[in-house]
């Protein structure tokens, strides 16, 4: 599947990050938090109202909005 993003993962699914698109402080923050090409991410859950989402990365839990998750392209 092409251009699948973190947003499309179902809770419990794992994937490898291929690219972090987007720009500016948000992208920078995502990189700083360890979401880099080659890292493994796991979708943990969606918030009860559907947004934001919780993921597991580098052994810790991180939440981000779906819009931001959509900038993280998966391999």
């Amino acid at each position: 599947m092409n251009n699948r993003s973190l947003r499309d993962l179902k809770p419990g699914e794992k994937a490898i990050v291929c690219k972090v698109s987007g720009s500016g402080p948000i992208r920078r923050r995502i990189l700083d938090m360890g979401i880099l090409p080659g890292s493994e991410v796991q979708m943990e859950r969606y918030a009860p109202m559907g947004d934001p989402v919780e993921i597991k990365i580098k052994g810790y839990y991180l939440s981000l909005r779906k819009n931001e998750a959509a900038t993280i392209i998966l391999a």
Partner: peptide, 10 residues
Amino acid sequence: ETEPFVMELP
């Protein structure tokens, strides 16, 4: 820009 909601759940 709205604050990126990239927040750790400790």
